[in-house]
Amino acid sequence: MLYIVITFLWASILLYLLLGGADYGAGIIELFTSRKNKDVTRQTLYGAIGPIWEANHMWLIIAIVILFVGFPVIYSTMSIHLHIPLTIMLLGIIARGTAFTFRHYDAVVDDMQYLYNTIFAVSSFITPLFLGIIAGSAVSGHIDPAADTFLSAYIFSWLHWFSVSVGLFTVAICGFLASVYLIGETKNDQDRLRFAHKAQFFNIAAVLCGILVFIAAYIEHIPLLEWVFGNWVGRIAIISATLSLVWMWSLLYQGKLALLRPLAGFQVTMILLTTTYKHFPNIVILKGGGYLSLLEHRGQEKTMEALGLALLIGSVFILPALFYLIYSFQKKPLGYPAEH
């Protein structure tokens, strides 16, 4: 059961990164779109994520529930030391979710729309930035359970070059996922080209941020190179991700769109795999070499069994319904541009 629970945890983090990430990315793209193109972007976006965006964000809830039920020590340690970035991320989630809903359900269309749009776009940037910072901090070895000053316990646990670079890298990945996703939603060459350019932009940004992450890791003595390239799984994952990226771009230039999304998804999956594989089961690495492990810091046997069972039962209900939802709106998309 323990491994079932861990699989669910990893899968929900992955799905959140892919689906929620594409969702955030859509807002990030809006932030980086010139004013005259904003409307088309916004409407393509609405047609693409309208029906499923709420569901995309459920994966975060599933992941957090698994953590607090199954791995309470890990959950409470992170809650204490990463209080500030978690709070900022939550504010981002609130602002973004409500702004997205409000701009479509406000019965009067007036200047308020400008406010909703700005909040939506800005919080779409901030939320994944801080999600990345949290993930980066967890493995950075900066969390110090013995810290005795406010700065060392609650600020420097997350504010350092490595975690910030991971945050920027996450933002770039979200933008990349969203642009690739939206290419498939477009109906004319002009828009397609625009999103292809966006994909290119975020692809380059992701590579640059990735390099930044490695530099920061080197400066702060985090053995990231070892984690990624020190084992066969990491090496194979990185090589196949790179190859698939080349393949994806050549397909895009030939105008073959069918495989773009699966390939982009594959690349991100590989990135998550390499970065989590080596230090599994240690999910949080503390200052001074301590760690919190999924295998050691877990709930009692009966809790894990009940949790695993709840997850299995849940997925029997959730997955078919979710697939049918996505399938029905893929087969017959909402109007383009969006109908009201």
Partner: peptide, 15 residues
């Protein structure tokens, strides 16, 4: 302490 004990309704509620 409470998470593992009263987590069951939360995991079902997630579903």
């Amino acid at each position: 302490h409470a998470g593992p004990i009263f987590g069951m309704p939360f995991s079902l509620e997630g579903t």
